[in-house]
Design a protein around this nucleic acid. Structure first.
Lengths: 107, 107
DNA sequence: CTCCTGGTTCAATGGTTATTGAACTAAGAC
DNA sequence: GTCTTAGTTCAATAACCATTGAACCAGGAG
């Protein structure tokens, strides 16, 4: 785990990005962020426990998938769409699309 | 790990596919298969040890990414492009493209 | 038949992962 | 100031991961 605040976490390693997005909870977080410019950590309490959320946010941030901004008493999370698109064009969109399809398994 | 021969391993779970392709050795195998209709297990001895290759082939097969066919004394591996494309359109191509970019890191 | 070659199986190992709960901190609300 | 909300940190745990090496097996080659 890296140091707490690392605004310049850049998208570098494909393995890290795919590992980050291979986890269902993290994919759920990312899928939700795709529809919102920003969301507070607290809006994901239905996904996992507080400390577990911190863990998943760290993994996503270290992979360069999200960025975290501190605003008053809240942490605001956002998806790093442009950075991901610049580094691996089409990857995030393909995974988001696949995730939507994957979600249809039990219809 | 599942039973030895499982020709009908189908692409079902996105997590399994992404986990399979998040490992660099396995991505290398898949990238090489993308240029060849079929390849013998033995053509990947430069990627890992024999037993380690068996392990990686199993993980790829269980995720539905490759299929393995026994021909005389050889095992022939092939990429399940159509099955992947049918289930998660564009995903494999995006990951293969990202892998090519990722490979350019040390230029 | 005996000897390779191609590949699997198995147990062991060290490292990593996700998850938990309790203790803690930072900052606004009252 | 006290209380509460939002979130981190830390240690512990169980499960899983990739990798190894040795033993094994199937089938062709000599």
């Amino acid at each position: 785990m890296r140091s707490p605040s690392h605004p310049g976490d850049d998208v570098v390693d494909l393995s890290a990005v795919l590992e980050a997005l291979s986890e269902p909870t993290r994919r759920q977080i990312v899928a939700r962020l795709a529809n919102q410019p920003e969301a507070a950590c607290s809006s994901f309490v239905d996904c996992a426990s507080k400390s577990n959320l911190t863990y998943h946010f760290n993994r996503l941030r270290e992979a360069g998938v999200i960025s975290v901004r501190k605003e008053a008493q809240f942490r605001l999370i956002s998806l790093r769409r442009e950075a991901l698109q610049a580094r691996f064009p089409g990857l995030l969109d393909a995974i988001l699309a696949a995730d939507r399809i994957d979600g249809e398994r039990f219809d």
